[in-house]
Simulated assay, not measured.
Amino acid sequence: MMTPLAAARAYGAAVKQANTLGDGGGGEAVQAPDFGKILQGAMEQTMKSTQTAEHMMVQQQAGQAELIDAVTAVSSAELQLQSVIAIRDQVISAYQEIMRMPI
């Protein structure tokens, strides 16, 4: 299971990559990407990975793909799903902490 620190590092790496891609090299400030868009992208990538894994399993059962390729695709999909779940859990935990704060 992914630790909160690992999830935070993954988010930081995604922000850094988005800023690098968005920087035209002119040195101007780049607005940080929207957290919702990052989550949506992660969910879309997880769905694609899951569909690829399912496709590889079907191909392997039909004898059209190697077992190791199917296992690798399933493992990749599982890791991505665990990452998304860890991020979701941290967001829920942060929301609950905010709701407990006195006004």
Rank of each mutant, 00 (worst) to 15 (best):
M57S: 10
G41A: 07
M1F: 09
M56C: 06
I87R: 06
V30L: 00
G22P: 03
Q31L: 05
E44N: 15
L5S: 09
A7L: 06
G24C: 12
E44K: 15
A62K: 14
V74A: 08
S49H: 01
D34S: 10
Y11A: 08
K48Q: 11
I68W: 15
D89V: 01
G26T: 09
R9G: 01
I103H: 13
E44W: 13
D34G: 02
Q60C: 12
E44M: 15
A7Y: 10
A13N: 11
H55G: 02
V30S: 02
A18K: 03
V15Y: 09
P33T: 10
S83C: 01
L79D: 12
I85D: 03
Q59V: 02
Q61C: 05
H55R: 15
T46H: 00
A62F: 08
T46I: 02
I38P: 06
M57K: 10
L81G: 04
V74I: 08
A94F: 10
E78K: 14
V91L: 15
P33N: 05
S75M: 07
D89G: 06
V74G: 03
L5P: 01
L39V: 06
I92P: 00
A77Q: 04
V15A: 07
A42C: 08
V30E: 00
Q90P: 01
E54C: 07
N19W: 06
E66G: 08
D69F: 14
V71G: 00
L21Q: 12
I98C: 01
T3N: 12
I92N: 00
G12I: 04
M101C: 07
A13C: 05
Q17A: 15
E66R: 14
A94M: 10
P4E: 05
Q61N: 14
L39S: 09
A77E: 07
M101F: 11
M56L: 09
A62P: 03
P102Y: 09
S83K: 11
Q82F: 08
E54K: 13
A62Q: 14
M1E: 02
T20C: 07
K48V: 12
A32K: 15
V71Y: 03
V74E: 00
D69P: 02
A7S: 06
I103C: 06
Q51C: 05
A73L: 04
A65R: 15
G12E: 15
E97Y: 10
V58T: 14
K37T: 14
A53M: 05
T52F: 13
Y11M: 08
E66P: 02
Q61S: 12
V74P: 02
G36N: 14
A6T: 10
T20K: 12
H55I: 01
L21G: 09
I87M: 08
N19M: 13
A86T: 01
G22Q: 07
Q64M: 12
A77L: 03
A32T: 11
T3Q: 14
A7W: 10
Q31W: 06
M99L: 13
P33D: 06
T72G: 00
D23A: 15
A6C: 04
P102D: 13
Q51Y: 03
Y95H: 12
I103W: 04
G26R: 02
E44P: 09
Q64Y: 11
S75H: 03
G27L: 09
G12Q: 15
A10K: 13
Q82S: 07
A94N: 08
D34Y: 12
G22F: 02
S83Y: 12
G22D: 13
M47D: 07
I87D: 02
A7V: 15
V71N: 00
